[in-house]
Design a protein around this nucleic acid. Sequence first.
DNA 1: AACTCGGGGCA
DNA 2: TGCCCAGAGTT
Length: 207
Amino acid sequence: MNYQEILDKLRECYPEVKTALSFQNPFELLIATILSAQSTDKQVNKVTQSLFEKYPDANAISLLSPEELEQEIKSIGLYKNKSKNIVTTSKMLVEKYNGIVPCTREELIALPGVGRKTANVVLSNAYNIPALAVDTHVFRVANRLGLTQSSNPLQTEEQLMVIIPEKDWSDAHHWLIWHGRIVCKARRPECQKCRLNHLCQYLNKSV
DNA sequence: AACTCGGGGCA
DNA sequence: TGCCCAGAGTT
C-alpha cells in the first residue's frame, strides 16, 4: 500500500486545512472540544459565541452551578454530563493551574470530560505540541483507506504516527475528518464520488 | 464490551 | 418521523 499516494491525494482534496472549531485561546478550544462530543460543530459554535461573551475564562465558568451552565448549552444535547464536567474542569484549572490550561496529555486527561482525543486536539492546535487526535471519523476513514488496520482509536493513532510525518499530524487529522464527513460517511459512503476510490480497498472488500 | 447521555438538523 | 452527530464516563 502506497501511503504517500493516499496522503498526497488527501492533501489535494482538502488543500486548505479547515477546523470546524476555530478557537484562538487554549481555554476556549478546550471547552469547545468538550462540548463537541457527539454534537455537530454548528451546534457548538452557536452556543459558544454567547457563552464566552458572558464567561470568558476558567474563573468565570468555575463560579457557575452546573444547572446554570445547562441553560447556556442545553441546545447541544448531552448537556448534563457536559455542564458538570466543564464546571468541575474550570474549578480544577483555577485551583491547580492558576486558570491556565495545562500542556501535557496526562494533566489534560485528568480533567473531567477530557479524553485522549480532546487532549490531543488541545495539545496540537493550542500549543503546537505534536499530537494526532483520533475521533470516529479518523478511525473509520483510516481503516477504510487501508492506512491502518486498527480495532481501536489508540491503535489508529499509533499506526498513523508511524506513517505520517510529524509536521503533518494536525493536517492529516483534519483531512481524514473532512473526508469522513463529506464523502466517506459512516452509513452510506459516496464511493462513486470519492477521488481516492481507485486506491481504496473499501469499494471491493466489505470492511 | 456494552450502555448512557440528548436536543436539534435534515431527508 | 427516524436517523445521526469533532466522545467520555460508568457498570
